[in-house]
Amino acid sequence: MNALAARRRHPAAIALLLFLGLALVGATYSLFAPKPAQAAVATADKVADGKALFQANCATCHGISAEGTKSGPTLIGVGAAAVDFQVGTGRMPLSAPNVQAPRIEQIKYSQEQIDAMSAFVASLAPGPAIPDQATLETEGDVALGGELFRVNCAMCHNFAGSGGALTRGKYAPALYGVEAKHIYEAMVTGPQSMPVFDDKNIDAKGKASIISYLRTVETQANVGGMNLGNMGPVSEGMFIWIFGLALMIGTAYWLGQKAA
């Protein structure tokens, strides 16, 4: 007891307490969080499998026949592309109620399962389809893609695709490390706050060009050195105030110290 009392003011105590609290919350959550039902994926009837998966995992919010409920919109007519995008990027199933579904690295379903659910949703009503391999492999014009990106995308996703803020806590996510397929699907379906950029707005060549441009931006060397997150002048200002000034003051301090 005494030892505990003596150490409770130790700086590490706060960190330890925080860690314990977080661990406890995490453990509790993982106990109660919904788990993906393990429906067997048979190759025979994709739509039927998709329906089973859907009803086990998605129907709580989207309704038993995807007609929508208070907690989730209808999926009739959203197309296979919407399902492939939302589930394939981990946005669905929604991990916690929030202003916006975040992208999650850990995908809960196999691509086969996603395809089955996509097939089921696509069977309800016509909607944007998942782009085929040929569409995705279309060689785009990087310069045109850049122009299209700046006019149609940069205002939300930022000049380099690092993302930006929208109203009331919503945001346009960063576009780094996103598969070409998912970028394409996002454009044709307009997920969440994002408007729809179907082929009548930006044609397939334009989309391919935008994707090529993003790939180029993502893979090109940082010719000037660290890119500070490509956030524009704010991060540059923070850098010069924190690191620049510290370097200068550190040097000046050394200069003013009497030698040993």
Binding site: M155, C156, G164, L166, T167, S193, P195, V196
Partner: peptide, 15 residues
């Protein structure tokens, strides 16, 4: 340019 259109809320936001 007020370019940011949120298609769900129908709000336009100036960056």
């Amino acid at each position: 340019p007020v370019g940011l259109y949120e298609q769900q809320t129908h709000h336009l936001l100036c960056p």
